[in-house]
């Protein structure tokens, strides 16, 4: 081998890390860091919808979204902010807790030594892999007031005499959304918890059984300590993904009827794109970003030791 070739090899080897890490970092700087900085930057400007002129307004965008005021007099929190935050809490809280309970139950069943559990696992995972838009519209069709399957089942079996207009009632529309959300995201909980259950040493179950521990005591004392890291990951990802999720809400209810199913994600989209107020949309984005990081920090400080 010639010396030039050798030295080229050596130079390339010395540059291995910069050449393998550098391009990715530049890419990340361009598609993540730059847009995130721009988000903060956009949140302090107000754009005139008529001539597109931008004006620096400081924290006015945040103020306008969160607080109610009239003629400079402070009147408390903005009603929209309060109700939309409440919808988000209800939506995320109920979806996450119900799908967690369901997912844990199914994961425990799938962890048993059952023949054909591979088939069950496949069947159980599929809803999560489908496009959320398709799943949302599918559930909208299921809950459709005249021709939907749920009304069909309820009336044709004689359980109900008249059909229910699910999407004309705020509470029922929220319930439909939550059911769709549980349907879509429970597989994710199952996958993560099932992987965690594989870490529980089999002998410990046997030992607990010998000691005469009951089902509940076995779960609390044997399964839970090993499962805790997976539970934390499943809950964290589930919550932060639900707060940001627009797809289901947008194709099922668009926040309606009225504003009864408007959540932060749909509020953000509506503000930025439908009402064409990028400054306020960006301000909401900043709030969403901050809330996400706060939730992760709280969950990990309360339940866990190290983040990821």
């Amino acid at each position: 081998m010639s010396t030039e070739k050798q030295s080229l090899r050596r130079t390339l080897d010395r540059l291995f890390v910069p050449l393998t890490v550098g391009p990715t970092m530049l890419w990340i700087a361009a598609v993540i860091v730059y847009p995130t900085l721009k988000l903060f930057w956009s949140s302090v400007f107000w754009t005139n919808p008529i001539n597109g002129q931008r004006e620096f307004v400081g924290l006015r965008n945040f103020q306008r979204l969160i607080f109610a005021e009239e003629g400079g007099a402070f009147l408390g929190l903005a009603p929209d902010f309060v109700s939309i935050t409440w919808h988000t809490i209800v939506y995320v809280g109920l979806s996450v807790s119900i799908s967690f309970a369901l997912g844990l139950g199914i994961a425990l069943l799938l962890d048993k030594d059952l023949k054909g559990r591979g088939w069950f696992r496949t069947a159980v995972i599929v809803p999560w892999i489908l496009p959320y838009v398709m799943s949302g519209l599918m559930w909208r069709w299921m809950f459709q007031s005249e021709y939907g399957a749920i009304n069909g089942l309820l009336t044709q079996s004689g359980l109900l005499s008249s059909k229910i207009a699910f999407f004309s009632d705020g509470t029922l529309a929220m319930m439909a959304l939550i059911i769709a959300d549980i349907w879509v995201f429970t597989p994710f909980i199952i996958i993560i918890l099932l992987a965690g259950l594989q870490n529980v040493p089999e002998q410990l179950y046997d030992a607990a059984e010998v000691d005469g521990a009951g089902r509940i005591s076995r779960f609390v004392n044997v399964t839970y300590p090993f499962l805790k890291p997976s539970i934390l990951v499943a809950l964290t990802i589930r919550i932060i993904f639900d707060i940001r999720a627009l797809d289901l809400v947008w194709v099922m209810t668009q926040g309606g009827p009225g504003k009864s199913t408007e959540v932060w994600a749909s509020w953000l989209y509506r503000t930025a794109q439908v009402f064409n107020r990028p400054g306020e949309g960006a301000a909401l984005g900043v709030v969403l970003l901050a809330v996400t990081f706060m939730i992760v920090a709280v969950l990990y400080n309360v339940f866990g030791d190290s983040p990821y």
Binding site: K38, L39, Q273
Partner: peptide, 9 residues
């Protein structure tokens, strides 16, 4: 980072 937060930028 929630992707939807970045729709404006």
């Amino acid at each position: 980072i929630p992707p939807i937060a970045l729709i404006v930028p």
